[in-house]
Design a protein around this nucleic acid. Sequence first.
DNA 1: CATGAATGAGTTTTCATTCAT
DNA 2: AATGAATGAAAACTCATTCAT
Lengths: 206, 206, 206, 206
Amino acid sequence: MAQVLKDEVRERIIVSAKQELLKNGYKDSSMRSIAKGAGVTAGNLYRYFTSKDELIKTIVGDTLLRINEFVKKNTDDGVSLEKDDFSWQIQKSDLTTIINDLGDELVKIYYERPEEMLILLMHSRISAAMDAWLTRLIYYFISQMIDSYETTAIKTAVTKSYAASIIGGIREIFVSDKLDQAEMTTAVRIYLSGFIMMIDASAKRK
Amino acid sequence: MAQVLKDEVRERIIVSAKQELLKNGYKDSSMRSIAKGAGVTAGNLYRYFTSKDELIKTIVGDTLLRINEFVKKNTDDGVSLEKDDFSWQIQKSDLTTIINDLGDELVKIYYERPEEMLILLMHSRISAAMDAWLTRLIYYFISQMIDSYETTAIKTAVTKSYAASIIGGIREIFVSDKLDQAEMTTAVRIYLSGFIMMIDASAKRK
Amino acid sequence: MAQVLKDEVRERIIVSAKQELLKNGYKDSSMRSIAKGAGVTAGNLYRYFTSKDELIKTIVGDTLLRINEFVKKNTDDGVSLEKDDFSWQIQKSDLTTIINDLGDELVKIYYERPEEMLILLMHSRISAAMDAWLTRLIYYFISQMIDSYETTAIKTAVTKSYAASIIGGIREIFVSDKLDQAEMTTAVRIYLSGFIMMIDASAKRK
Amino acid sequence: MAQVLKDEVRERIIVSAKQELLKNGYKDSSMRSIAKGAGVTAGNLYRYFTSKDELIKTIVGDTLLRINEFVKKNTDDGVSLEKDDFSWQIQKSDLTTIINDLGDELVKIYYERPEEMLILLMHSRISAAMDAWLTRLIYYFISQMIDSYETTAIKTAVTKSYAASIIGGIREIFVSDKLDQAEMTTAVRIYLSGFIMMIDASAKRK
DNA sequence: CATGAATGAGTTTTCATTCAT
DNA sequence: AATGAATGAAAACTCATTCAT
C-alpha cells in the first residue's frame, strides 16, 4: 500500500483542490470539501499538506517558478520575482520579440498545466507577491515605450491600466476552452501585438 | 420622522458596507462589522436588508441600472441588461464615437458613485450576471469590428479577451486616486483609443 | 433581558471557567466545556470573551494587579511587574516586616478571591510573566540576606530554591480549605518567619 | 537479535519521550513527535507502549521505586508508597540524619537519572498518586517535629506547606544545570538544613 | 517487527442569521 | 424600530490511536 497509495491520494487531493479553487476561489474552498472531493478525511489531508496555504502554494508553485525562470533568462537576470527593483534596460526594437516570446511561453506553460495557470491568474490573492510582480514587470515593459503624456499621473494610470489589461486578457484567452494549443498561441500573439501597437500609438499621442 | 430615521439608517448601513467591501472584499466583510460601522446592531441591520446578498445587490444595483440606461440609449434599445441576444448593428464609423462616449459616461458615473463603481468592477463575483453582461456588451461592440481571424474560436477568444482587458484596465484607472475628473476622462480616452486602434489593426491582420 | 442577563451569563462563564481551570488546568480546559458548564453555547461565549487567553486574563488580571500594586507601594516603586531590573535596596532589618506584610496581603487577597489566587499560583504558565516576576521578586528579597556560600553557583541555586519554595508553600496553605482568614494569616506568618530564620541561618553557614 | 533490536528501539523511544516531556510538558508532548525523535513511526511506538500514559509511567516508574525503596529501608518498612497510613515513629534526634540522608539520596538518584527525576518533580500531574505520596511522606517527617500550634488546622496547613516547599525547592536546585554533583549535594544539604532549623523554630513558637 | 495511511473526535474560533424583549 | 443575546453550522487544524499491509 505504502508508497503507491500515498502518491495516488496526494494526487487526488491536488485534483480535488484544483477543482474547488477554480470553482469557488480560495476563501470558499474549504479543506473539508477538498478532502471530501478526494475521498479522504479532513484529518488525513493534513498528513499531505500541513496547511491550506501550503496546499495552494504546492499547486501553484511550480508554475510560478517556470514563469520566473523564463523572465530571468530573457532579461539577463535583470528582472526576477525575488528582486524589488529592476536593473534591466530594454531596447525599443526588442519589445515586440520579447512580448511575443512571453506570450508563447505563457501559452506553453498553460498547456502543460492549465488549471495551475488559471488558479494563478484568477485567484491572484493567493500569491499577492506574484500578482504585484507580474503587474510591475509588464508595467516596466510598457513604461519604457511611453515618453509623453499630459501629466505624470495620467501616464502612470494609463500604464498601470495597460498592464492590468494584459493579464486580464490573457487569462480570458486561457479560459476559453475551445482553442487548441496552436490556436491559443495565435490568439495570444494577436492579442499582444495589438497591445504593442496600442502602446506605440498612445506614446505618440499629443 | 419614523420614515426619515429609517432612511438615514439605511443610508448609513450602505455607506459602511461600501467601505468594508472596498477594503476587504465580499467574503471578508462581515455583517457585524458593517453594522458596527453604521452605528447599528447586527440584528437591526436585518430589518433593512434581509441578507448579505441583498445588501450588496442594493449597493450595486443603481449603478448597474445607470450603465444599462446609457447603453440602451446609445444603441437604440438594441442592447440591454435584460436581453440575452443583441439585435443592434453598429457602423464601423461610429465605433470611435460610441466607445469614447462610453468611456466618458463611465468616468461620469464613477465620479458620481466611485465606491459603487469600484465594487462593481472589483468584486464582479458579487453579481456574476452583471459581469457576464458587461463583458458581453463590450464583446458585442468589439466583435462588430473584427471580421477575419484564423478561426472562429480564435476570433471569439481574442474578442472576449479584449473585452475583459477593457474592464480590467478601466478599473485600474479608477483605482488610481491621484487623478481629478478631467485627467481621468483623458486617461480613459487615451486608454480606449488605444483599444480602437488595436482592434482595427487586429481586424486587418491576415 | 438586556443588561441583567448579560452580566449574569458573564458571571456564569467565569464561574464555570474557574472550576474548569482549577480542576483541569489551562490546556485541559476547553472553551466548549467551559461554555457548557455555564449553560451557554460555545459560539455565544465568544461574545463575552474574544479568546481563551482573554478569558483567563480576565479571571486572573485583577488579582495580578492587586499584588503588583502592593509590591510597588512597599518598595517605593523600586520593584514592579513592569520592570526588568529592580532599583530597590532593602535593609536587613526591614526584611521581617516586609515579608510579613507581604504574607498578610496575600492572605487578604486570597480571601477576597480564592479561586483567582489559586489559578494564578497553580497554573503559573497562564501568565509566565507573573511567575517569573514573583520568583524574581522573592529571589531579590532573599539574595539580599545571603552573603557567603561555597560557590556563586550554589548561592544562586539555593536562593532560587528558597524563592520557589515560598511560592509553592503559600499555595499549599491556600489550598487547605479548613482555615479561616485569621488562621490562614497566622499560618502564613509562621510559614514565612520560618523562612526568614532559615535564610538567616543559611547565610551564617560556613 | 530480535530482542536486542527491540530493546534498543524501546530505549530510543524513552530517551525521546524524556526530552519532549522536559521541554514541553505532558499535554504538549505528542506521541508523533516522541516517535519522530526516536526515529520510529508513531504506529510502531504503540507496539512498545500501549498508551501515552503507560509510556510516561514507564519512564518515571523506576525512579519512583528507587525512592520508595530508600524510604522503606530508612523507616524500617514503616513508610512506603503502597501504604496509606504510616506506622513509623521517628525520634527527634534522628531527624537531621534522616533528612540529610534523604537529601543525599535524592541527589544521587538525580545524578543517575536526572531526566526521570525532573519529570517526576515537574509534571507531578503525571502520576498524581506519587505526588500525593511524596507530599505525605515529607509531611510525615515534618509533622513528627511539630507539637504545638494555634490550632490543628494551622498545624496541618503549615506542615503540608513545608512539605510542598521542600519538593519545589529541591526541584529548583536540580533544574539549575550549573552545579556538579558535589555542589548539588552541598546545595541540597544547605537547603534542607535550613528547613530543619525552620521547623525546629516553628515548633518552639508559642 | 515495522510502516505509514487513515480515522474520528477533539481543539479554538468566526459568522450569517434568528428571536425574545 | 431597535437591541443584543443566542444559535448552529462552519472554518482550519491537531492528535491519540488503529489497522491493513
